[in-house]
Write a protein that binds this DNA or RNA. Structure first.
Length: 822
RNA sequence: GCCGGAGUGGCGGAACUGGCAGACGCACCGGACUUAAAAUCCGGCGAUCCUUACCGAUCGUACCGGUUCGAUCCCGGUCUCCGGCACCA
């Protein structure tokens, strides 16, 4: 064993050994319980950042621990390899996206190996490989065949100067990120997936995910945004049209004083063309066109509206109310039209005040401080119904069901549910993504590519000019094809898929990553799924995790996925901060993993990251903290060396109470690490208990400990406990302890509950809840015996002399509380 | 605005089920070793007060109140910070 801890030498040595022995290769086994552990795969942007290091360190500790606990652990890694940055690099530097991506993957894979992360590399996937995206295309075709993929017109961001489509994130303050020109809109036919068909199940099944943070479940709940209410038809005066609205407040139907249409509502033109109001309406719509989506949807935007000269009839009471168009009503939610009840809706109230529309209260707050006939703001809480005919006097919340019942029996309206969640627009006017495997035939319309022809390969004869609708239009070989139905000439879809599709099913592919004949073997997926523990950044709390759940449910419905929910337990790790802010190039507060590995080694980097903060919390980077972690590893290296020397000396003389303390510290550490890693992923407290054990080891040595057997046991236990966290130094020390096989072939140490017992314990004695004395008593006394002891003790007796004892509470091995009066 | 989460020493954090607040580490201070320094090992380290010192007392987990023998933990209210959603009818 080397005198000094030479991290760089040790780490290279063991990384090579692990690579040679393919230590972490996994297969299906009947003799062991499976555990599927997964961290979110990275986008290959170039190099690992500290967030990656944290994510994979957490996963690696869990993986190594579970292996030692005897599980058959699947722990794979891959690359979310399609996306915009690769294409931007191509436009800027003339490097093909494929080359750029492959080089980045190579670099990042090397870094992962340098950090000692343990994966089954035989299962590695990259979403940009044809062998992978073939199956992404296959899934799309299954969606299409099941009626869950469809085309619809939707406006995209269009830069008139670059003559190209821009992603939302390429639009900065309404201008093109590259050239700065004002961004306009252009309508394109685009593909959608009907995720809304799964909205109810995606919502309901959240309740089954006990292993997910409440925060993430709430975020998904809000995102899906289920609202229950009713649709009601309002006949339009002097017309055969009926205006259908959605409301969650049928109890306020009698308070409707006007209607509002979204500006894009088809009725707007139909009801105003050829009338006196046509010109004004046209101008109003024209002005709205200039607003960006962000402004249009802003809550701070002043509400603007216009009366369109038509009226609708309230089907409940026959009242005739004016119809407006206004910027605060959205076409893509509900029916694109609302009934306005200014008395009981804040937005309607604001609008009614501005345009001097009547405000009719229909819910009485029953609060003398509020004058319902002179409301200062909308009253939105619970109350008693008034001005509402037969429903007067009822509690408004309770009356909702009655009113919906009434609407349905009279044919005026129906019970209805609406979701905030929209269908998923998946078309991207980009090159570097999975080609959408659809063909447009002039005779047959849209038809899918034949499954046996997959993958539809990305062509290489493409120009990256940064111009045009999609780079794929520049490839002659790609676009022209034949119809799979009639055989006539046809054209391929030239858009590619949103990269979120690629990452919505990769975890299933890991179960059988090299299968070329089908998406995966069902038996293998059945063996491994679901993922027992998923680990990643909270920034994916909504989109990625929702899409992955959607895909899994769909694949389950068509008989492929063995489970309907992919992730049993979810851990969302906190961000890595420096000087209180997220590390970023623009702030200049980036610490690169490379420099830390170089200076202190991977083990130190991992130890610091795991020790400084619990995984789900933010982690503040501290150079001094890194230094401290490094010092601790040096301390470990030295004490293990000392202990192995004591063991080699072969003395058998036990060293009394000092040895008992060491044995207790050792067993306590085993228990604590077992619980903190196995049960709650609190690596920071697990490490602190190992530090306490190391401190106890130094104490024992200082006290002159010579017992060879105990020294060997303590040293080896320390190595085993630390091995999930800092694998390289532990393999090195394990070898120094005389072992020839890897430490990861060892079982996790067990602890002896008996060794944790103390002979005497210190208990606190409280008088009226305040600590007044401490007593050393035999451990394990009952509450009564403890109280007797306390009352009799010379430090407590004077404190209660002459006072009336009202109550006595004893907590074994902890405390006594005596309540006295007088 | 709505929905979450958090607030503990100089700092990161611990206290898991209502039972001794501040484990462990960082920083700092002191001692040993050394010609010296670094490294290392050992010890101290919430605040205020009392005391020569020892001993001790009081306060203390954002703030105000409640429940309880006992509250960092449970309940009600307030403030601040962070995150998500945001004209969703």
């Amino acid at each position: 064993m080397m005198k000094k801890y030479e991290h760089s030498e040790i780490e290279k040595k063991w990384q090579a050994v692990w690579e040679r022995d393919a230590l972490f290769k996994t297969g299906e086994r009947a003799d062991k319980e499976k555990y599927y552990l997964l961290e979110m795969f990275p986008y290959p942007s170039g190099k690992l950042h500290m967030g990656h290091v944290r994510n994979y360190s957490i996963g690696d500790v869990a993986a190594r621990f579970l292996v030692m606990k005897g599980y058959n652990v699947l722990h794979p890694m891959g690359w979310d390899a399609f996306g915009l940055p690769a294409e931007n690099a191509a436009i800027k530097n003339g490097i093909h996206p494929y080359i750029w991506t492959k080089e980045n993957i190579k670099e990042m894979r090397t870094q992962q190996k340098q950090l000692g992360f343990m994966y089954d590399w035989d299962r590695e996937v990259a979403t940009c490989n044809p062998g992978y995206y073939k199956w992404t295309q296959w899934i799309f075709i299954q969606f299409y065949k099941n009626g869950l993929a469809y085309k619809k017109k939707n406006p995209v961001n269009w830069c008139p100067s670059c003559e190209t489509v821009l992603a939302n994130e390429q639009v900065v303050d309404g201008c093109c990120e590259r050239c700065g020109s004002a961004v306009g809109k252009r309508d394109l036919d685009q593909w959608y997936l009907k995720i809304t068909d799964y909205a109810d199940r995606l919502l309901a099944d959240l309740d089954t995910l006990d292993g997910w943070p409440a925060k993430v479940k709430t975020m998904q709940k809000n995102w899906i945004g289920k609202s229950t209410g009713a649709e009601v038809d309002f006949p339009v005066t002097n017309s055969d049209k009926k205006l259908k609205i959605f409301t969650t407040r049928p109890d306020t139907l009698f308070g409707v004083t006007y209607m509002v249409l979204a500006p894009e509502h088809p009725y707007v033109k139909e009801l105003t063309d050829g009338t006196d109001h046509e010109a004004a309406v046209t101008e109003f719509l024209a002005q709205l066109q200039y607003l960006s989506d962000i402004d249009r949807n802003s809550t701070t935007l002043e509400k603007e509206g216009l009366f369109i000269g038509r009226y609708a009839v309230n089907p409940l009471n026959g009242a005739e109310v004016p119809i407006y168009i206004a910027n605060y009503v959205l076409m893509d939610y509900g029916t694109g039209a609302i009934m306005a009840v200014p008395a009981h809706d804040t937005r309607d109230f604001e609008f009614a005040v501005k345009y001097e529309l009547p405000i009719i209260p229909v819910v009485d707050p029953g609060d003398p401080a509020i004058d319902v006939n002179d409301l200062k703001e909308a009253f939105v809480a619970e109350g008693t119904m008034i001005n509402s005919g037969e429903f007067n006097g009822k509690n408004n919340k309770e009356a909702i069901a009655d009113i919906i019942e009434h609407l349905e029996t009279t044919g005026i309206g129906t019970r209805s549910v609406n979701f905030r969640l929209r269908d998923w627009l998946i078309s991207r006017q980009r090159y570097w993504g999975t080609p959408i495997p659809m063909i447009h035939c002039p005779n047959c319309g849209w038809v899918p590519e034949k499954e046996e022809n997959l993958p539809v390969l990305l062509p290489t004869d493409v120009e990256f000019s940064g111009k045009g609708e999609s780079p794929l239009t520049t490839s002659k070989s790609f676009r022209d094809t034949v119809c799979t139905v009639c055989g006539g000439p046809a054209e391929r879809e030239i858009d590619t898929m949103d990269t979120f599709l690629d990452s919505s099913w990769y975890f299933l592919r890991y179960c059988d990553a090299r299968n070329d004949g089908e998406i995966f073997d069902k038996d293998k997926a059945k063996y491994w799924m679901p993922i027992d523990q998923y680990i990643g950044g909270v920034e994916h709390a909504i989109l990625h995790l929702l899409y992955a759940r959607f895909f899994t449910k769909f694949l389950c419905d068509i008989g492929w996925s063995p489970v309907a929910e992919p992730f049993t337990k979810l851990l969302t790790q906190g961000m890595v901060l420096k000087d209180g802010a997220k590390m970023s190039k623009s702030l200049g507060n980036v610490v690169s993993p490379e420099e830390i590995i170089e200076k202190y080694g991977a083990d130190t980097a991992r130890l610091f990251i795991l020790f400084a903060s619990p995984p789900e919390k933010e982690l503040e980077w501290s150079d001094a903290g890194v230094e401290g972690s490094y010092r601790f590893l040096c301390r470990v290296y030295r004490i293990v060396g000392d202990y192995l020397a004591i063991a080699a000396a072969g003395s058998a003389s036990p060293t009394g109470s000092a040895s008992k303390n060491l044995t207790r510290a050792m067993n306590a550490a085993v228990k604590k690490v077992e619980e903190d890693v196995g049960r709650r992923f609190n690596f920071n407290t697990a490490i602190s208990s190992i530090m306490e054990f190391v401190n106890a080891m130094y104490k024992w040595k200082d006290a002159g400990g010579t017992d060879a057997a105990l020294a060997k046991q303590a040293a080896e236990t320390l190595i085993l406990l630390l091995s999930p966290f800092t694998p390289h130094i532990c393999e090195e020390l394990w070898e120094a302890a005389g072992h020839t096989a890897s430490v990861y072939g060892e079982p996790w140490p067990s602890y002896d509950e008996k060794a944790l017992e103390l002979d005497t314990v210190e208990v606190a004695v409280q008088i009226n809840g305040k600590i007044k004395a401490r007593l050393n008593v035999a451990a394990g006394l009952t509450a009564d015996a403890l109280i007797e002891n306390a009352l009799a003790s010379e430090s407590v007796a004077p404190l209660i002399a002459g006072k009336e004892i009202v109550k006595k509470i004893g907590v074994p091995d902890k405390l006594v509380n005596i309540v006295v009066r007088g």
